[in-house]
């Protein structure tokens, strides 16, 4: 917050002016974000379909039903696996890649080219990425299978998106392909803000690149690591589009995540109350993650 004028308590007249300036933005958030989110919680206490006029109040029954729904367990697990793999790739690996690119190991021109190449997937629409990878992963005719055949690994060939054991991992892989380079570019910006002479001092002491990474880079970008981790976990919680495009939660619900499960319940199976229950679970998980972030940021 700015402190310029905060010490004097605003008069109502002054306040009115300030409120008018923020009112449009606030109104949008209340009407399209907060209001619906709260309505959604209320919906979760009823059983009804899109067209039905009478709603059955069922209390917490939707929640009990969700708890014993095996698809819910699958979805939660998939979201969790999504988060773990994404944090590993998009925070861990991306940070290492960023550190290497910022360490002047490569000539500027090549470093820049590498950054552009790795960044490229992140500018593409998720839908297009999903469809292209669907084609790439098609058995026999797809590129991946052909590579496996050419390199003598034909026995590895499989219907990556068509088998319950691999579907969610194939989707998660594509997500890493798309976003690791973007997070890497974020880290590069953060690393550039770390004072150069820290590195030079350590280098004079004969420290290796790895030592410099742990002792200067990691502490230097700690704030960014925290924020990126939170964003990545939130992203894994709300993931919908890439899964919907590539597998739609299949085969046999094996790659279902909370988002696809919710969407299917509302717009395919017409169980609005049940769907709102899933959305409410997403809401509370997101809220918890948000509160953890605020707590962590206050602590430093």
């Amino acid at each position: 917050m700015t402190d310029r004028s905060d010490h004097s308590r605003a008069t109502w007249r002054q306040s009115l002016q300030g409120w008018l300036w923020v009112a449009p933005a606030l109104l949008f958030l209340v009407i399209f974000v907060y209001g619906p989110a709260l309505t959604n919680i209320r919906f979760s206490l009823f059983s009804f379909s899109a067209m039905s006029l009478d709603w059955d109040f069922v209390g917490l029954n939707n929640y009990l039903r969700l708890w014993s729904d095996p698809k819910f367990t699958t979805a939660l697990t998939n979201n969790a696996v999504y988060a773990v793999i994404s944090v590993t790739c998009q925070v861990g690996i991306a940070l290492v890649l960023a550190a290497v690119l910022e360490a002047r190991i490569f000539p500027d021109f090549s470093a820049n080219l590498f950054r552009t190449a790795l960044f490229l997937p992140s500018i593409l629409p998720v839908v297009v990425v999903g469809l292209v990878w669907q084609l790439l992963l098609t058995p026999t005719t797809g590129l991946i299978d052909q590579i496996l055949w050419e390199t003598g690994l034909a026995s590895w060939s499989r219907a990556w998106l068509g088998e319950p054991d691999t579907a969610i991992f194939a989707v998660i892989f594509v997500s890493q392909w798309q976003w690791t380079g973007y997070i890497m570019a974020l880290f590069m910006v953060a690393i550039r803000a770390v004072p150069r002479d820290l590195y030079e001092a350590m280098e004079i002491d004969g420290a290796s690149g790895v030592q410099q990474f742990w002792h200067i880079t990691v502490p230097g970008v700690r704030e960014t690591i925290l924020i990126v981790t939170i964003i990545t976990i939130l992203g894994s919680l709300k993931v919908f589009d890439i899964v919907w495009v590539m597998t739609a939660g299949g085969p046999n619900h094996s790659s279902e995540v909370l988002g696809t499960m919710m969407y299917r319940a509302a717009f395919r199976d017409d169980m609005i109350g049940y769907s709102s229950t899933i959305a409410t679970v997403i809401f509370f998980i997101a809220l918890t993650i948000g509160l953890v972030q605020i707590k962590l940021q206050k602590d430093r």
Binding site: P36, A37, N40, L234, L258, M262, S275, A279
Partner: peptide, 10 residues
């Protein structure tokens, strides 16, 4: 922090 899913149905 709120994903679109939580407001989608309303």
């Amino acid at each position: 922090i709120l994903p679109p899913e939580v407001s989608l149905i309303p």
